[in-house]
Amino acid sequence: MDALKSAGRALIRSPSLAKQSWGGGGRHRKLPENWTDTRETLLEGMLFSLKYLGMTLVEQPKGEELSAAAIKRIVATAKASGKKLQKVTLKVSPRGIILTDNLTNQLIENVSIYRISYCTADKMHDKVFAYIAQSQHNQSLECHAFLCTKRKMAQAVTLTVAQAFKVAFEFWQVSKEEKEKRDKASQEGGDVLGARQDCTPPLKSLVATGNLLDLEETAKAPLSTVSANTTNMDEVPRPQALSGSSVVWELDDGLDEAFSRLAQSRTNPQVLDTGLTAQDMHYAQCLSPVDWDKPDSSGTEQDDLFSF
Protein backbone atom coordinates (compact mmCIF):
# COMPACT_ATOMS: atom_id res chain seq x y z
CA MET A 1 0.00 0.00 0.00
CA ASP A 2 2.95 2.33 0.48
CA ALA A 3 3.59 2.47 -3.24
CA LEU A 4 -0.05 3.33 -3.89
CA LYS A 5 -0.16 6.07 -1.27
CA SER A 6 3.13 7.64 -2.30
CA ALA A 7 2.04 7.58 -5.93
CA GLY A 8 -1.19 9.35 -5.06
CA ARG A 9 0.58 11.97 -2.96
CA ALA A 10 3.16 12.61 -5.66
CA LEU A 11 0.51 13.09 -8.32
CA ILE A 12 -1.49 15.48 -6.18
CA ARG A 13 1.66 17.50 -5.49
CA SER A 14 2.77 17.73 -9.09
CA PRO A 15 0.65 16.11 -11.82
CA SER A 16 2.90 17.64 -14.49
CA LEU A 17 5.72 15.28 -13.53
CA ALA A 18 4.01 12.44 -15.33
CA LYS A 19 4.24 14.21 -18.68
CA GLN A 20 8.03 14.02 -18.81
CA SER A 21 9.67 11.74 -21.34
CA TRP A 22 12.91 9.81 -21.09
CA GLY A 23 15.15 8.55 -23.83
CA GLY A 24 14.23 11.35 -26.19
CA GLY A 25 17.70 12.69 -26.84
CA GLY A 26 17.55 15.68 -24.52
CA ARG A 27 14.07 16.92 -25.44
CA HIS A 28 12.73 16.36 -21.96
CA ARG A 29 12.47 18.80 -19.08
CA LYS A 30 14.48 18.59 -15.88
CA LEU A 31 14.25 15.10 -14.48
CA PRO A 32 13.73 13.90 -10.91
CA GLU A 33 16.91 13.10 -9.03
CA ASN A 34 16.35 9.41 -8.37
CA TRP A 35 14.41 6.36 -9.43
CA THR A 36 11.99 6.55 -6.50
CA ASP A 37 10.79 9.98 -7.56
CA THR A 38 10.17 8.89 -11.15
CA ARG A 39 8.35 5.79 -9.96
CA GLU A 40 5.82 8.04 -8.24
CA THR A 41 4.68 9.49 -11.59
CA LEU A 42 3.22 6.17 -12.71
CA LEU A 43 -0.40 7.12 -12.12
CA GLU A 44 -0.68 9.33 -15.18
CA GLY A 45 2.02 7.48 -17.08
CA MET A 46 5.75 7.52 -17.70
CA LEU A 47 6.88 8.13 -21.28
CA PHE A 48 9.81 6.44 -22.99
CA SER A 49 11.07 7.20 -26.50
CA LEU A 50 12.10 3.90 -28.08
CA LYS A 51 12.32 2.19 -31.48
CA TYR A 52 9.89 -0.58 -32.33
CA LEU A 53 11.58 -3.76 -33.51
CA GLY A 54 8.48 -5.83 -34.12
CA MET A 55 6.31 -8.65 -32.81
CA THR A 56 6.21 -12.43 -32.94
CA LEU A 57 3.85 -15.03 -31.52
CA VAL A 58 4.93 -17.19 -28.58
CA GLU A 59 3.42 -20.31 -27.03
CA GLN A 60 3.88 -19.55 -23.33
CA PRO A 61 3.02 -16.43 -21.27
CA LYS A 62 6.47 -16.09 -19.69
CA GLY A 63 10.02 -17.40 -19.54
CA GLU A 64 13.54 -16.12 -20.08
CA GLU A 65 14.48 -18.68 -22.72
CA LEU A 66 11.14 -18.23 -24.44
CA SER A 67 11.51 -14.44 -24.64
CA ALA A 68 15.16 -14.67 -25.69
CA ALA A 69 14.24 -16.90 -28.64
CA ALA A 70 11.37 -14.59 -29.59
CA ILE A 71 13.59 -11.50 -29.45
CA LYS A 72 16.20 -13.26 -31.56
CA ARG A 73 13.56 -13.90 -34.24
CA ILE A 74 12.30 -10.32 -34.09
CA VAL A 75 15.80 -8.85 -34.39
CA ALA A 76 16.68 -11.15 -37.30
CA THR A 77 13.50 -10.16 -39.14
CA ALA A 78 14.11 -6.46 -38.53
CA LYS A 79 17.69 -6.69 -39.79
CA ALA A 80 16.65 -8.66 -42.87
CA SER A 81 14.06 -6.04 -43.81
CA GLY A 82 16.72 -3.32 -43.97
CA LYS A 83 14.12 -0.70 -43.00
CA LYS A 84 14.65 2.08 -40.49
CA LEU A 85 13.04 1.35 -37.18
CA GLN A 86 9.84 3.12 -36.26
CA LYS A 87 10.31 5.69 -33.50
CA VAL A 88 7.63 5.29 -30.88
CA THR A 89 6.58 6.55 -27.47
CA LEU A 90 5.80 3.99 -24.82
CA LYS A 91 3.47 5.25 -22.09
CA VAL A 92 3.51 3.03 -19.01
CA SER A 93 0.91 3.36 -16.25
CA PRO A 94 -1.14 1.09 -13.96
CA ARG A 95 -3.69 0.97 -16.77
CA GLY A 96 -1.18 -0.66 -19.10
CA ILE A 97 1.02 0.24 -22.06
CA ILE A 98 0.05 2.72 -24.77
CA LEU A 99 2.21 2.71 -27.88
CA THR A 100 2.10 5.69 -30.27
CA ASP A 101 4.03 6.72 -33.38
CA ASN A 102 6.38 9.64 -32.69
CA LEU A 103 5.92 11.27 -36.10
CA THR A 104 2.17 10.93 -36.60
CA ASN A 105 1.13 10.58 -32.94
CA GLN A 106 -1.09 7.73 -34.14
CA LEU A 107 -2.06 5.00 -31.69
CA ILE A 108 -0.34 1.71 -32.48
CA GLU A 109 -1.27 -0.45 -29.51
CA ASN A 110 -3.13 -0.13 -26.22
CA VAL A 111 -2.43 -3.07 -23.91
CA SER A 112 -4.33 -3.40 -20.63
CA ILE A 113 -2.06 -4.13 -17.69
CA TYR A 114 -3.73 -7.45 -16.88
CA ARG A 115 -2.92 -8.78 -20.37
CA ILE A 116 0.83 -8.39 -19.76
CA SER A 117 2.35 -11.60 -18.40
CA TYR A 118 6.10 -10.95 -18.72
CA CYS A 119 8.64 -8.23 -19.49
CA THR A 120 12.41 -8.24 -19.74
CA ALA A 121 15.64 -6.54 -20.73
CA ASP A 122 17.23 -9.15 -23.00
CA LYS A 123 20.55 -10.68 -21.96
CA MET A 124 21.98 -11.20 -25.45
CA HIS A 125 20.67 -7.99 -26.99
CA ASP A 126 21.06 -5.92 -23.86
CA LYS A 127 19.53 -2.74 -25.32
CA VAL A 128 16.27 -4.51 -26.10
CA PHE A 129 13.17 -4.29 -23.92
CA ALA A 130 10.35 -6.74 -24.58
CA TYR A 131 7.03 -7.75 -23.11
CA ILE A 132 4.65 -10.66 -23.64
CA ALA A 133 0.92 -9.98 -23.67
CA GLN A 134 -2.29 -11.67 -24.70
CA SER A 135 -3.80 -10.26 -27.88
CA GLN A 136 -6.97 -8.24 -27.37
CA HIS A 137 -8.42 -9.80 -30.53
CA ASN A 138 -7.91 -13.47 -29.65
CA GLN A 139 -6.18 -15.75 -27.16
CA SER A 140 -2.77 -15.68 -28.87
CA LEU A 141 0.33 -14.52 -26.99
CA GLU A 142 2.50 -11.83 -28.57
CA CYS A 143 6.06 -10.78 -27.79
CA HIS A 144 6.76 -7.13 -28.66
CA ALA A 145 10.37 -5.88 -28.70
CA PHE A 146 11.86 -2.38 -28.62
CA LEU A 147 15.36 -1.01 -29.13
CA CYS A 148 16.49 1.35 -26.36
CA THR A 149 19.40 3.79 -26.41
CA LYS A 150 21.29 1.65 -23.91
CA ARG A 151 21.06 -1.23 -21.48
CA LYS A 152 20.18 1.10 -18.60
CA MET A 153 17.09 2.28 -20.48
CA ALA A 154 15.94 -1.27 -21.23
CA GLN A 155 16.22 -2.15 -17.54
CA ALA A 156 14.43 1.04 -16.52
CA VAL A 157 11.46 0.35 -18.81
CA THR A 158 11.28 -3.22 -17.51
CA LEU A 159 11.19 -2.06 -13.89
CA THR A 160 8.60 0.61 -14.72
CA VAL A 161 6.23 -1.93 -16.25
CA ALA A 162 6.72 -4.26 -13.27
CA GLN A 163 6.02 -1.41 -10.85
CA ALA A 164 2.92 -0.36 -12.82
CA PHE A 165 1.63 -3.92 -12.56
CA LYS A 166 2.20 -3.89 -8.80
CA VAL A 167 0.37 -0.58 -8.35
CA ALA A 168 -2.52 -1.83 -10.50
CA PHE A 169 -2.82 -4.93 -8.34
CA GLU A 170 -2.88 -2.75 -5.22
CA PHE A 171 -5.62 -0.62 -6.78
CA TRP A 172 -7.60 -3.77 -7.40
CA GLN A 173 -7.15 -4.90 -3.80
CA VAL A 174 -8.33 -1.53 -2.46
CA SER A 175 -11.30 -1.47 -4.83
CA LYS A 176 -12.26 -5.00 -3.88
CA GLU A 177 -12.14 -4.17 -0.16
CA GLU A 178 -14.17 -1.00 -0.66
CA LYS A 179 -16.80 -2.85 -2.67
CA GLU A 180 -17.09 -5.52 0.03
CA LYS A 181 -17.57 -2.80 2.67
CA ARG A 182 -20.24 -1.07 0.59
CA ASP A 183 -22.06 -4.34 -0.09
CA LYS A 184 -22.02 -5.16 3.62
CA ALA A 185 -23.24 -1.68 4.58
CA SER A 186 -25.98 -1.90 1.98
CA GLN A 187 -27.10 -5.28 3.27
CA GLU A 188 -27.12 -4.10 6.88
CA GLY A 189 -29.03 -0.98 5.88
CA GLY A 190 -31.56 -3.10 4.01
CA ASP A 191 -32.05 -5.32 7.07
CA VAL A 192 -32.68 -2.26 9.27
CA LEU A 193 -35.16 -0.87 6.77
CA GLY A 194 -36.97 -4.22 6.55
CA ALA A 195 -37.19 -4.44 10.34
CA ARG A 196 -38.70 -0.95 10.56
CA GLN A 197 -41.26 -1.83 7.92
CA ASP A 198 -42.21 -5.04 9.76
CA CYS A 199 -42.85 -3.21 13.00
CA THR A 200 -44.80 -0.32 11.41
CA PRO A 201 -48.59 -0.60 11.96
CA PRO A 202 -50.72 -0.88 8.82
CA LEU A 203 -51.86 2.47 7.43
CA LYS A 204 -55.52 1.41 7.75
CA SER A 205 -55.23 0.95 11.52
CA LEU A 206 -53.61 4.37 11.85
CA VAL A 207 -56.49 5.97 10.04
CA ALA A 208 -59.05 4.02 12.04
CA THR A 209 -57.67 5.13 15.39
CA GLY A 210 -57.08 8.68 14.26
CA ASN A 211 -53.31 8.55 14.92
CA LEU A 212 -50.93 10.67 12.80
CA LEU A 213 -47.80 9.35 11.08
CA ASP A 214 -44.67 10.57 12.86
CA LEU A 215 -42.75 12.07 9.95
CA GLU A 216 -39.97 13.26 12.25
CA GLU A 217 -39.18 9.71 13.37
CA THR A 218 -39.28 8.53 9.77
CA ALA A 219 -36.75 11.20 8.87
CA LYS A 220 -34.44 9.94 11.61
CA ALA A 221 -34.47 6.40 10.22
CA PRO A 222 -31.26 5.27 8.47
CA LEU A 223 -32.81 5.62 5.01
CA SER A 224 -30.20 8.14 3.92
CA THR A 225 -27.46 5.64 4.69
CA VAL A 226 -29.20 2.99 2.65
CA SER A 227 -29.72 5.28 -0.33
CA ALA A 228 -26.14 6.50 -0.15
CA ASN A 229 -24.91 2.95 -0.45
CA THR A 230 -27.40 1.80 -3.06
CA THR A 231 -27.60 4.80 -5.35
CA ASN A 232 -24.06 4.33 -6.64
CA MET A 233 -23.80 0.56 -6.40
CA ASP A 234 -22.96 0.35 -10.11
CA GLU A 235 -20.15 2.85 -9.75
CA VAL A 236 -16.71 1.28 -9.43
CA PRO A 237 -15.13 2.10 -6.06
CA ARG A 238 -11.96 4.17 -6.14
CA PRO A 239 -9.00 4.05 -3.78
CA GLN A 240 -9.24 6.62 -1.02
CA ALA A 241 -5.61 7.56 -1.48
CA LEU A 242 -6.55 9.28 -4.75
CA SER A 243 -9.46 11.39 -3.50
CA GLY A 244 -9.05 14.94 -4.74
CA SER A 245 -6.60 14.01 -7.49
CA SER A 246 -7.13 14.27 -11.22
CA VAL A 247 -6.84 10.53 -11.75
CA VAL A 248 -9.96 8.48 -12.36
CA TRP A 249 -9.36 4.78 -11.82
CA GLU A 250 -11.87 2.34 -13.21
CA LEU A 251 -11.60 -1.44 -13.00
CA ASP A 252 -13.18 -3.35 -15.84
CA ASP A 253 -14.45 -6.91 -15.63
CA GLY A 254 -11.40 -8.30 -17.40
CA LEU A 255 -8.98 -6.83 -14.88
CA ASP A 256 -11.10 -7.97 -11.95
CA GLU A 257 -11.27 -11.52 -13.29
CA ALA A 258 -7.56 -11.67 -14.17
CA PHE A 259 -6.35 -10.36 -10.81
CA SER A 260 -8.78 -12.63 -8.98
CA ARG A 261 -7.21 -15.62 -10.73
CA LEU A 262 -3.72 -14.37 -9.89
CA ALA A 263 -4.62 -13.90 -6.23
CA GLN A 264 -5.77 -17.53 -6.05
CA SER A 265 -2.99 -19.16 -8.06
CA ARG A 266 0.20 -17.33 -7.05
CA THR A 267 2.03 -16.68 -3.80
CA ASN A 268 3.01 -13.15 -4.89
CA PRO A 269 0.33 -12.21 -7.43
CA GLN A 270 1.29 -8.53 -7.35
CA VAL A 271 4.74 -9.26 -8.82
CA LEU A 272 5.09 -9.32 -12.60
CA ASP A 273 7.69 -11.80 -13.80
CA THR A 274 10.73 -10.16 -15.39
CA GLY A 275 14.01 -11.44 -16.75
CA LEU A 276 16.02 -9.17 -14.45
CA THR A 277 18.32 -10.57 -11.81
CA ALA A 278 18.39 -9.13 -8.29
CA GLN A 279 21.66 -7.41 -9.19
CA ASP A 280 20.12 -5.88 -12.32
CA MET A 281 17.15 -4.58 -10.36
CA HIS A 282 19.32 -3.08 -7.64
CA TYR A 283 21.52 -1.40 -10.25
CA ALA A 284 18.59 0.04 -12.18
CA GLN A 285 16.81 1.27 -9.04
CA CYS A 286 19.93 3.20 -8.04
CA LEU A 287 20.02 5.04 -11.36
CA SER A 288 18.77 8.54 -11.96
CA PRO A 289 16.82 9.04 -15.20
CA VAL A 290 19.61 11.45 -16.13
CA ASP A 291 21.92 8.42 -16.23
CA TRP A 292 19.70 6.77 -18.82
CA ASP A 293 20.75 9.35 -21.39
CA LYS A 294 24.48 9.11 -20.67
CA PRO A 295 26.49 7.21 -23.30
CA ASP A 296 27.59 3.72 -22.35
CA SER A 297 31.22 3.39 -21.36
CA SER A 298 31.64 0.76 -24.08
CA GLY A 299 31.70 3.37 -26.82
CA THR A 300 29.72 5.80 -28.93
CA GLU A 301 26.01 5.20 -29.17
CA GLN A 302 24.78 4.45 -32.68
CA ASP A 303 21.26 5.35 -33.65
CA ASP A 304 20.84 2.17 -35.66
CA LEU A 305 19.51 -1.36 -35.32
CA PHE A 306 22.80 -2.87 -36.48
CA SER A 307 24.76 -1.36 -33.59
CA PHE A 308 24.17 -4.42 -31.39
Rank of each mutant, 00 (worst) to 15 (best):
residue 205 S to R: 13
residue 256 D to V: 04
residue 154 A to T: 06
residue 243 S to T: 13
residue 91 K to T: 13
residue 75 V to L: 11
residue 298 S to W: 11
residue 94 P to N: 02
residue 90 L to E: 00
residue 281 M to C: 06
residue 44 E to I: 14
residue 295 P to Q: 07
residue 66 L to I: 09
residue 200 T to M: 03
residue 75 V to Y: 00
residue 134 Q to I: 02
residue 128 V to E: 00
residue 48 F to S: 01
residue 98 I to H: 05
residue 46 M to L: 07
residue 186 S to T: 05
residue 237 P to K: 09
residue 19 K to E: 07
residue 53 L to S: 00
residue 218 T to I: 06
residue 132 I to Y: 02
residue 157 V to G: 00
residue 193 L to K: 08
residue 107 L to S: 03
residue 33 E to D: 13
residue 8 G to L: 00
residue 257 E to C: 06
residue 281 M to D: 06
residue 71 I to W: 00
residue 188 E to C: 03
residue 61 P to A: 06
residue 37 D to V: 08
residue 272 L to M: 13
residue 109 E to V: 06
residue 57 L to I: 11
residue 3 A to W: 11
residue 152 K to H: 03
residue 44 E to Y: 04
residue 299 G to Y: 14
residue 137 H to M: 13
residue 208 A to V: 12
residue 34 N to A: 10
residue 226 V to S: 08
residue 107 L to T: 10
residue 61 P to K: 02
residue 280 D to S: 06
residue 233 M to G: 09
residue 101 D to Q: 11
residue 291 D to A: 09
residue 67 S to V: 12
residue 207 V to R: 15
residue 53 L to E: 00
residue 123 K to W: 11
residue 219 A to N: 10
residue 215 L to Q: 06
residue 42 L to A: 03
residue 247 V to M: 06
residue 141 L to E: 03
residue 165 F to K: 02
residue 108 I to K: 07
residue 51 K to D: 03
residue 242 L to N: 12
residue 22 W to Y: 11
residue 85 L to E: 01
residue 274 T to D: 12
residue 219 A to H: 13
residue 240 Q to H: 13
residue 133 A to S: 13
residue 296 D to E: 10
residue 37 D to Y: 10
residue 19 K to V: 10
residue 78 A to N: 00
residue 49 S to K: 02
residue 88 V to D: 01
residue 64 E to K: 06
residue 128 V to T: 01
residue 292 W to Y: 11
residue 300 T to W: 05
residue 45 G to W: 01
residue 263 A to V: 10
residue 85 L to G: 00
residue 89 T to K: 08
residue 249 W to E: 13
residue 219 A to Y: 10
residue 49 S to G: 15
residue 288 S to Q: 04
residue 279 Q to I: 08
residue 86 Q to M: 06
residue 264 Q to S: 15
residue 19 K to R: 15
residue 176 K to C: 06
residue 137 H to K: 14
residue 124 M to L: 07
residue 227 S to T: 13
residue 40 E to F: 02
residue 228 A to M: 02
residue 227 S to C: 11
residue 31 L to K: 04
residue 119 C to V: 02
residue 267 T to G: 05
residue 258 A to H: 08
residue 42 L to H: 13
residue 171 F to S: 15
residue 189 G to P: 07
residue 39 R to Y: 05
residue 213 L to Q: 12
residue 259 F to E: 03
residue 172 W to V: 02
residue 167 V to F: 15
residue 265 S to H: 11
residue 289 P to M: 08
residue 268 N to V: 02
residue 99 L to C: 10
residue 279 Q to Y: 09
residue 240 Q to E: 11
residue 216 E to D: 06
residue 207 V to Y: 02
residue 112 S to C: 15
residue 281 M to T: 08
residue 169 F to Y: 14
residue 69 A to Y: 07
residue 88 V to M: 15
residue 58 V to W: 02
residue 164 A to C: 13
residue 202 P to M: 09
residue 100 T to I: 07
residue 114 Y to H: 12
residue 59 E to M: 05
residue 104 T to V: 01
residue 163 Q to V: 10
residue 280 D to K: 07
residue 37 D to M: 13
residue 8 G to V: 01
residue 13 R to E: 15
residue 181 K to A: 13
residue 45 G to L: 09
residue 170 E to R: 04
residue 249 W to N: 04
residue 154 A to F: 00
residue 27 R to N: 14
residue 304 D to H: 07
residue 268 N to Y: 08
residue 145 A to M: 00
residue 195 A to C: 04
residue 223 L to T: 09
residue 299 G to P: 01
residue 105 N to H: 14
residue 200 T to K: 10
residue 51 K to G: 00
residue 28 H to C: 13
residue 155 Q to P: 00
residue 204 K to A: 13
residue 247 V to Q: 11
residue 291 D to I: 10
residue 278 A to R: 09
residue 257 E to G: 08
residue 249 W to I: 06
residue 16 S to A: 08
residue 257 E to N: 04
residue 120 T to H: 04
residue 290 V to E: 01
residue 226 V to M: 09
residue 294 K to G: 06
residue 235 E to C: 07
residue 94 P to R: 14
residue 128 V to K: 00
residue 4 L to Q: 03
residue 61 P to M: 12
residue 112 S to E: 04
residue 136 Q to I: 04
residue 3 A to M: 12
residue 279 Q to E: 12
residue 132 I to W: 14
residue 55 M to G: 11
residue 289 P to E: 08
residue 134 Q to S: 14
residue 199 C to D: 04
residue 155 Q to V: 06
residue 223 L to H: 03
residue 92 V to Q: 00
residue 285 Q to V: 06
residue 232 N to W: 05
residue 219 A to M: 02
residue 159 L to A: 12
residue 188 E to L: 05
residue 242 L to T: 09
residue 208 A to H: 06
residue 257 E to S: 05
residue 78 A to I: 07
